[in-house]
Design a protein around this nucleic acid. Structure first.
Length: 427
RNA sequence: CGGGGCGUAGUAUACCGGUAGUACGCUUGCUUUGGGAGCAAGUAGACCGAGUCCGAUUCUCGGCGCCCCGACCA
């Protein structure tokens, strides 16, 4: 894409109402726009990153048998009353509203009825599966979605890390036995580790022993080490063991075979969470199957979440430097940033145009900075935007018959002759 | 929800009980062109409401909005 056509612009200053690094950089570089506290819109560059993250997750979840759907965000109270979660003291972040009443007048008006905006989707997915699962032959089954959740948090905070409206990849597993459930649970944990590795935070993200909340005794969180994180985790890098501070009791330590003083205490961001649901929802909503003997048996469920937006924010928090964002290749909005330093020289522009076309023919997507601005501004913007590979075209590089290739991550610069460009980019 | 802070051009900020200033941006022109250029001209602003006052952007009260700490976080 030609940068001159991109409607967003970079900014020198961050808005004063953003303190979190992720929001400051993402807004300055034109990735996101703040609508209100806890609600952000995604702009062209931001949406590209978001979709890349989504695609990584999709590929890894499909690889373990996930089937993708989208459930409705609007929810009627009936289902949630069956699981006793319509009450505000059961889920205190409900956004509730009402259907518009018909007939309007005081005498003949009918009540419109209540509605909620889904903060999570255990109830509707369980009810949906109850329509399709009858026999042991229909199981196991794994269903997921990327879908917007609404949570009326008392306090939104930390930029895009904790918002009132956010997309979540939520996967639900439906199994016939505890053993079958555990088998998938482990597979999913491995898939999560692959996802975080591809997203560029594999080295600092740990599967973490955590509380299971109200559904089970324990669960597994995926925690990324980061000073600006909200969680505290005890980490044993050597053994690769991590325990959320909340559950780090003597009993747990004994179970894991680690002494407390062997741990390093770190701040972390929770980028994923997987946990057993047991039969909590299948029993409440009547999701049973007939086993081999014809007996109705409740389905054993599990739930697996990742917020792509929070993951995006975490990548920015962890990998950015003083100049701006540093995207890992797989999530970057573009793999290549062509920067033309022309100073008005038409030959340089023609050379950069040629390069842009060459990459297009090779199906390598590039952001092409064809703007008529000075070199310093282009470099500063390129650093801020954070595309992993920069190709600089100028009079100087042309005289040597090639381009400069610069790595955003470590700044290494190499000269590449015109004939070798596409080969080098494929490395 | 408890505590604290803050609302001034598109953005970041300053001053002030008496006609609101600067920088960046944006527009026009000339010069410039490998790390956020220079000169000139132009554009654009006090969250809303009430009160005090001759006069309020400034002081007081209320509302709304935003940020931070804590609590909370299926």
């Amino acid at each position: 894409m030609r940068q001159s056509q991109l409607f967003t612009k970079t900014r020198r200053d961050a808005p004063k109402d953003e303190v979190a690094k992720n929001a400051q950089l993402l807004i300055r570089a034109g990735y996101i726009h703040k609508e209100m506290a806890g609600a952000y819109s995604y702009l062209p560059l931001g949406l590209r990153v978001f979709k890349n993250i989504e695609q990584i997750i999709r590929e890894e979840i499909n690889a373990i048998g996930g089937q993708e759907i989208i459930l409705a965000a609007l929810q009627s109270p009936a289902l949630w009353k069956k699981s006793d979660r319509w009450r505000d003291d059961a889920i205190d972040v409900w956004f509730k509203t009402e259907l518009s009443a018909r007939g309007g007048s005081a005498s003949g008006g009918k009540s419109g009825g209540q509605l909620g905006l889904a903060p999570t989707h255990e109830e509707p997915i369980t009810a949906l599966m109850a329509e399709y699962v009858q026999s042991y032959k229909d199981l196991p089954c794994y269903v997921y979605q990327f879908q917007t959740k609404f949570r009326n948090e008392l306090r939104a905070k930390s930029g895009i890390m904790r918002t009132r409206e956010f997309v979540m990849k939520d996967l639900y597993s439906f199994s016939r036995s505890e053993r079958e459930f555990r088998e998938f649970y482990e597979k999913c944990a491995q898939a999560y580790l692959r996802i975080f590795k591809r997203a560029g935070i594999g080295a600092t993200t740990f599967r973490t022993f955590a509380s299971g909340g109200s559904f089970s005794k324990f669960s597994d969180e995926f925690q990324t080490v980061c000073d600006s994180g909200e969680d505290t985790v005890y980490l044993h890098r050597g053994k690769g063991i991590a325990v959320n501070k909340e559950v780090c009791t003597d009993e747990v330590l004994a179970e894991l075979g680690v002494k407390r003083d062997e741990f390093e205490e770190v701040k972390t961001i929770e980028v994923g969470n997987i946990f057993p649901l047991g039969t909590r929802f299948s029993e409440a909503l009547g999701l049973t199957y007939k086993d081999e003997k014809g007996e109705a048996t409740p389905v054993i469920m599990g739930s697996y979440g990742i917020g792509p937006g929070r993951l995006m924010g975490t990548i920015v928090e962890v990998l950015s430097d003083e100049k701006g964002i540093v995207w890992p290749r797989e999530v970057a909005p573009f793999p290549v940033h062509i920067v033309a330093i022309s100073g008005g020289n038409a030959d340089v522009i023609a050379e950069a145009d040629w390069l842009y076309e060459l990459l297009r023919e090779q199906r390598i997507e590039a952001l092409y900075d064809d703007r008529d601005v000075r070199a310093g501004e282009k470099f500063a913007d390129a650093d801020l935007v954070g595309i992993p590979t920069r190709l600089v075209v100028s009079e100087k590089t042309m005289s040597e018959g090639g381009v400069e290739m610069i790595s955003r991550a470590d700044g290494t610069t190499t000269f590449v002759s015109d004939n070798d460009i596409t080969e080098r980019l494929k490395e």
